[in-house]
């Protein structure tokens, strides 16, 4: 078993475990911390796939900015106590069962899909994930969506300010 495979399985296990921990933690702050762990694991996957730019951006934007925002809000509201009332147990069960069914159905779908047989993802090599190549594509082919996304940011900022403002 190569080092890449070992890393893959380790990161996968870490991601799934952390994700489950996000779910089961009673304390929202712990959830946020476990979610950050998930993001780190996913960034690890990105590096394995030689998508360095996305790995860094994922860490900076998600694990850094967004999760800090989450933490900030949680602490602002003082939600670190066990303030959440339990959902009805049947609702929980129904949610878990339907989520499980969803997983099962999709897994079985993938298992028998001919398209995915004998296909592999290129590990470690390939340079499309480098900043240079991505930047070229982004500022040539995708320049219009890129500019539009700046407008989206602006409107999101305005929206957040308007919503969050006290009357």
């Amino acid at each position: 078993m190569s080092i890449t495979e070992i890393l893959f399985f380790f990161l996968s296990a870490l991601a799934i475990f952390s994700a489950i921990m996000v779910l089961v933690s009673r304390n929202p702050v712990h959830s946020v911390l476990w979610l950050i762990a998930v993001f780190f694991a996913i960034s690890g996957h990105y590096i394995l796939l030689n998508a360095q730019f996305l790995a860094i951006v994922n860490l900076i934007v998600y694990a850094g900015a967004i999760m800090v925002l989450f933490l900030f809000v949680i602490m602002l509201m003082n939600l670190n106590k066990e303030s959440e009332r339990n959902k009805h147990v049947w609702m929980k069960l129904a949610g878990a069962v339907s989520g499980g069914c969803f997983l099962m159905v999709l897994v079985s779908l993938v298992r028998q899909a001919k398209d995915f047989q004998e296909k592999t993802a290129l590990m470690g090599t390939g340079d499309i994930g480098l900043i240079k190549n991505l930047g070229k594509a982004l500022f040539s082919d995708f320049v219009v969506p890129f500019e539009i996304s700046s407008v989206l940011f602006l409107s999101a900022m305005v929206g957040a300010v308007v919503i969050g403002k006290k009357e």
């Binding site: 994700a19 489950i20 996000v22 779910l23 959902k87 609702m91 949610g95 878990a96 989520g99 999709l106």
Partner: peptide, 17 residues
């Protein structure tokens, strides 16, 4: 991961979670 997300959405009541 996606299914875990779904289960989380379905079972948790805390909006932030």
């Amino acid at each position: 991961l996606f299914s875990i997300g779904i289960i989380g959405v379905l079972t948790r009541r805390n909006a932030i979670i």
